[in-house]
Computed example of a mutant assay.
Amino acid sequence: MKRVLITAGATGIGLVMAQAFAGAGYRVWVTDVDAGMVSALPAGIRGSVCDASQEPAMQALFADVARDWGGLDVLCANAGIKGPTAGIEDMPLDGWHQCLAVNLDGAMLAAKHAARLMKPAKSGVMIFISSTSGLYGTPFRAPYVAAKWGVIGLMKTVAMELGPHGIRANAICPGSVNGPRIDRVIEAEAQAKGMTPDAVRQGYAAGTALKRLSDPEDVAAMALYLASDGARMVSGQALAVDGMTYNVDP
């Protein structure tokens, strides 16, 4: 039975991915900073409280994985926060640092410690959750955009370094995904732009070829594919799951 670890997997996209992997027969272990959500995980999904941006916590987590599972087949580096929404002239430095710490440092730490488990086995899959913001940018979201571009660069480097050891790495780039998180993003962007939340949401949908937002299940389906043997020659790719976004400024 294959083993998957998902950071920030107790809510949102992470939880939907966890349920999809469990449904596909994987052993699933998720982390989250929210102890209450970890304690409420569905049966069959193991959870640990862990801040993905802190190396001592990640070291302890992967030590537990090595002890209890003896290895790891799939990593989903999913931990992320939206960061501050503001024009660059008003961007708070502490908010910038926090956003990069969770989104980019967290991805690096997950890859670092997963590689130490996967290299001896000469196999493994790393899936990084970036964003379409990491492909072309988003106004008023400089920290998030910078972090998600960084995740793609990290992924490509990891794919090059670890490919000779039988390890694949790819990034999923969701667009706007239905759920509480995008609701908060839309509220903040509407305030920054002097628009109504409904107008911002409609602009997001109108800026895609399919004229709708994605669902978490769409992202989970891509993760399952990338983890599968059907994707055995897919590595180093940043794959958008967004209905083909072509207008990024609603």
Results as ranks from 00 to 15, higher is better:
Met126Pro: 08
Met126Gly: 10
Met126Ile: 13
Met126Gln: 13
Ile127Trp: 05
Ile127Phe: 06
Ile127Arg: 02
Phe128Asp: 13
Phe128Glu: 09
Phe128Val: 11
Ile129Gln: 14
Ile129Asn: 15
Ile129Thr: 15
Ser130Ala: 15
Ser130Gly: 08
Ser131Pro: 06
Ser131Trp: 05
Ser131Gly: 02
Ser131Thr: 04
Thr132Val: 15
Thr132Lys: 04
Thr132Gly: 00
Ser133Glu: 11
Ser133Phe: 10
Gly134Met: 09
Leu135Ala: 06
Leu135Ile: 12
Leu135Thr: 08
Leu135Cys: 07
Leu135Lys: 15
Tyr136Pro: 00
Tyr136Gly: 15
Tyr136Cys: 14
Gly137Pro: 08
Gly137Thr: 10
Thr138Ile: 10
Thr138Cys: 04
Pro139Ile: 14
Pro139Cys: 11
Pro139Ala: 07
Pro139Asp: 13
Phe140Gly: 00
Phe140Met: 12
Phe140Arg: 14
Arg141Cys: 06
Arg141Pro: 04
Ala142Glu: 05
Ala142Gln: 10
Ala142Gly: 12
Ala142Leu: 11
Ala142Asp: 06
Pro143Phe: 04
Pro143Tyr: 05
Pro143Thr: 07
Pro143His: 03
Tyr144Trp: 07
Tyr144Ile: 10
Tyr144Lys: 09
Tyr144Phe: 06
Tyr144Asp: 05
Val145Cys: 12
Val145Glu: 03
Val145Arg: 04
Val145Ser: 09
Val145Ala: 09
Val145Met: 01
Val145Asn: 12
Val145Gln: 07
Ala146Thr: 14
Ala146Gly: 01
Ala146His: 00
Ala147Val: 08
Ala147Thr: 06
Ala147Phe: 04
Ala147Lys: 03
Lys148Asn: 11
Lys148Arg: 12
Lys148Pro: 05
Lys148Phe: 09
Lys148Thr: 04
Trp149Cys: 06
Trp149Phe: 14
Trp149Gly: 01
Trp149Val: 02
Trp149Gln: 01
Trp149Glu: 03
Gly150Val: 01
Gly150Lys: 01
Gly150Phe: 00
Val151Asn: 01
Val151Lys: 01
Val151Tyr: 00
Val151Ile: 15
Val151Ala: 01
Ile152Asn: 03
Ile152Arg: 06
Ile152Ala: 04
Ile152Phe: 01
Ile152Ser: 08
Gly153Ser: 05
Gly153Asn: 04
Gly153Lys: 09
Leu154Tyr: 02
Leu154Glu: 02
Leu154Gly: 08
Leu154Thr: 04
Met155Ala: 09
Met155Cys: 10
Lys156Met: 13
Lys156Pro: 05
Lys156Arg: 12
Lys156Val: 10
Thr157Cys: 09
Thr157Val: 13
Val158Asn: 10
Val158Phe: 05
Ala159Ser: 12
Ala159Thr: 13
Ala159Asp: 12
Ala159Leu: 14
Ala159Gln: 12
Met160Thr: 14
Met160Trp: 13
Met160His: 10
Glu161Arg: 11
Glu161Thr: 10
Glu161Asp: 15
